[in-house]
Every structure is written in structure tokens, then in C-alpha cells.
Design a protein around this nucleic acid. Sequence first.
DNA 1: GCCGCACGCCGATCTTGACCTCCACCGATG
DNA 2: CATCGGTGGAGGTCAAGATCGGCGTGCGGC
Lengths: 241, 241
Amino acid sequence: MTAEPASPGTRPGRTPRLPRTARRFQLLGAAREVFVAQGYHAAAMDEIAERAGVSKPVLYQHFPGKLELYLALLEEHSAQLVTSVQEALESTTDNHTRIVRSVQAYFDFVNDPSGAHQLVLESDLRSEPAVRQLIETAFARCVRAIAATIVADTGLTQDEADLLAVGLVGLAETTSRWWLVRGGTVSKERAVESMVELAWRGISGYPRQERPPGQPDQADGLDAAAGPPDGAGSAPAASEP
Amino acid sequence: MTAEPASPGTRPGRTPRLPRTARRFQLLGAAREVFVAQGYHAAAMDEIAERAGVSKPVLYQHFPGKLELYLALLEEHSAQLVTSVQEALESTTDNHTRIVRSVQAYFDFVNDPSGAHQLVLESDLRSEPAVRQLIETAFARCVRAIAATIVADTGLTQDEADLLAVGLVGLAETTSRWWLVRGGTVSKERAVESMVELAWRGISGYPRQERPPGQPDQADGLDAAAGPPDGAGSAPAASEP
DNA sequence: GCCGCACGCCGATCTTGACCTCCACCGATG
DNA sequence: CATCGGTGGAGGTCAAGATCGGCGTGCGGC
């Protein structure tokens, strides 16, 4: 006691006393910046607090610990990605458009100026079960959505459709991240277009695959949406034999 | 632990005094096990030494520090992956076989019982520049090898080929890891076959990029191995070394 | 208009855990 | 038989997560 408060007139007020909700939001923003820039392990709670303009105790009054803070951000952004992909798939019944919008969803997600995609796609805390589970669940939701679309519009088995969906997700993830890093060379639209074309060529002709006889194949490929292909003509240059 | 120092006569000799090379090899093996199981940050040098049956000073006599030990493992396995992919591409001139063997290279790499692929594909030390650079270099080498093949056998530009190669690498990476985790459902051969088919459909028809109609470019696909199209000049410009 | 209350905020500190070296010991060699 | 290089356990250092008492401000009640 009587430590050395020096002079009581020292300007103590740094922060204008925010309400809890606003403060929490600001802390999440600061944490996102630091976690994205440094990664989980290299990030320090001191820096997050400093970045937010508050002291560490305030941080610990809003979040029980570093892990929970990270998980809050991770949950937010992984849900955002999943929602984007699901909306892209549900927004239309034309499968080519579905692919376009899904790939675009990944590119947009990666292109977010906050760089939050790194938390979901390049986390350095996969050893933590909670983190791993969250990331894998988000991945699985995207895969499941795509696979459900595939299995609904083709005669493929669930396993086959899962595999294809995983491949497409990996393609979109990897290319979008690569495009972001090497962003200068190719425009986003061009990259998306290339990837869509690759994916579309890859799966558009699928239902005509040699299947055990007795299984009447659908009349058309994936490009046949729910209804008849009435002038959709979406197939770009698909080599239609 | 530390039951008691008790008597100094407790048979201290555990290790039969290995030569340096063998000892180093053994240390690398122990380190690999621990790093794979725990990740870099959760791994402790104590555990690596204990796993190897030696004490910590010997560990530090073979490696300057934890990071260097990790880098040695990372370099070894990333080089192994790159070599596998390069050999797969150079082993034949048939592009379909090239894809088969390349995808198989990824699946084999992931399927290694040591689990070493996690070091390269799921490292939790990307914040470290040396680690990041090593991983990205390995990735880039795989991409470059594939892109070089594409650009040699088609008229695509370097940028386009890079993009396709990145997509194929991402596809192989993601599906192989997914297959390993969900290994029970699909056999490896079946998964490889599906992915090869997807990739092959995706790129096999490529050299006939949107060209004015009326061109009878029937057999002019990637499956036509030799002979770059004469009219495909289009200023490659050779930007990257 | 004024007072007391309560809440939010801060400086300084503690503790843990992991990486990295110093004193006793033992088998091979001249 | 003596020496010497390598081995083993105990300890130092430091960074980073987590926390305790005090302070100042804004607001409801009188």
C-alpha cells in the first residue's frame, strides 16, 4: 500500500469507458488482427490488449483465456465460410452456376481484407481438439453440402460424391489461397473462371460413367438441373460426345 | 518419478554407445514420432530425448536447437514428396499415367506409417519464416513440375498452367489427407482412381481453348503427348526463372 | 443540485513450463 | 593400471499466460 501513486492527477483515462458489447467487439477485432498476423502461438495477449488500447485484465474480464478468444474468432469465420458455400449452392438449380458461385465464395472468403481466412485454413493450433473439431466440422459441412448436391443430381454413391466434393473443396481452397498470395499475376475473375472450368469439365459428365448394368442412368449429366435443360446451355466447351 | 537417487550403482548404462550417424538417425526417428504425435509446440525436447533413450545434452550435441531438429525432419520429408512427384512426372510421357502416378505419389506420401506428412502438410509452425519458406518451396516445386508438363504439352500460358497445377495439387493433397482420416470407407485404389478421373476429365481437353469453331482438333489433347502446337506461340514471355 | 454506489479500468506481480547448460560417473585404450 | 571422452541428472533463465488491490468516472436517488 502507499505504493507510489505518484501524482493522482496523472491522466489515467485512456479508454472512454465503453459498454461491454462494444468493448467485446473491439477486443475481437484486435485479437483477429494479431492472430492473423502472428498466428496463435506467436500471438501474445499483451499485444492484443495493447492493440485494443486496454490492459490485460480487461481482456480476461471478457474472455476466460487465450484459447476461448481464439475459438470465438474461429467459430465466427468458419460459420461465415460455410454459410457462403451453402448459399451459393442453394441460390440456383443450375449446377454450373452453383460451381461458379461456390468457387467465388472461397475466393471472396480468402479475399477478405482482414485476412481472417488464415484462422480457418491455416490455423497453427490443430493439436487442440476443440480447434481441430471446429475446423473439420466446417470443412465437413462444406463437403456435405456439395456432396448432397452431387448425389441428388447424379446416380453416384455417397462415398463417390464425398470424394468428389472433398476434391473440389481442396481445389477451391488451395487455388484461392495461392491466388491471394500470388495475387498480382492473375485477376480474380480469370482465376475463378479457370478453376470453374476445370471443375466443371471434371464432373459435368459424371453420371454417364460405366455403372453396373440394370441401373438406368439419368438422361443427362450434372448440367441437367432438376428440370429439363431448357436452353440453359451452360456447358461452356464441355466435350459432349 | 525421481523415485530416489538411492544408490549410484544403479546400472546407468542404458545406451550401448552408438556411432554418431546411427545416433543421429535414431534421434531423428524419435523426434519424428514426438513431433507427429504432438505437433511442434506441444512437443518437448525432454520427451524426444527420453523416447530415444538418451539424455538432453546428447540431443543438443547433435542439433543446435529444437527448431533445427524440426527443420531437418521437414526438409527430409518435403524433399521426399517433391522427388516422388517429379519422378512420377518423368517416369512416362503418357499424361494420363502421369496423373495416375502423381496422385498415387500423394496418397503414398500421406499413407506413410510414420505420419510424417503431417509435418509438411499440417505444420503448426508456419509463423516461423524458415518453416514457411521450406513448405512453400516444396509446394512450389510440385506445382512447377506439373505446370511445366502442362505448358510443354499444351498451348496454355504459364499463368494458366500454374493455376491448373495448383488446383491439381490442392485436389491431391486434400483428398489424400481426407482419405487417410476417413480411411475405412474407400480403398486407396478406388480413391486414387476417382481423383485421377476427375483431374483427367478436367484437363484432358484443355489445349482446345476457345478457338474459332470449325477447327477439327480431334486428337489434339493432352493425351497427345508429343509435339507442341505450332501456332501456340502467343508470347510465353518466360517471366519466371 | 449534490452524494454515494457500483462498475469498469489499470499497474504491477506470480507462476508455470519449456528450452538450454554445469558437476558426478563409467567403459574403452595405451 | 591410469586417462579421457562421452553420458546422466539437476538447475538457470526467460517469456508468456493469468491475476490482485487501487483508482477514477458515470449514474440513480434524495
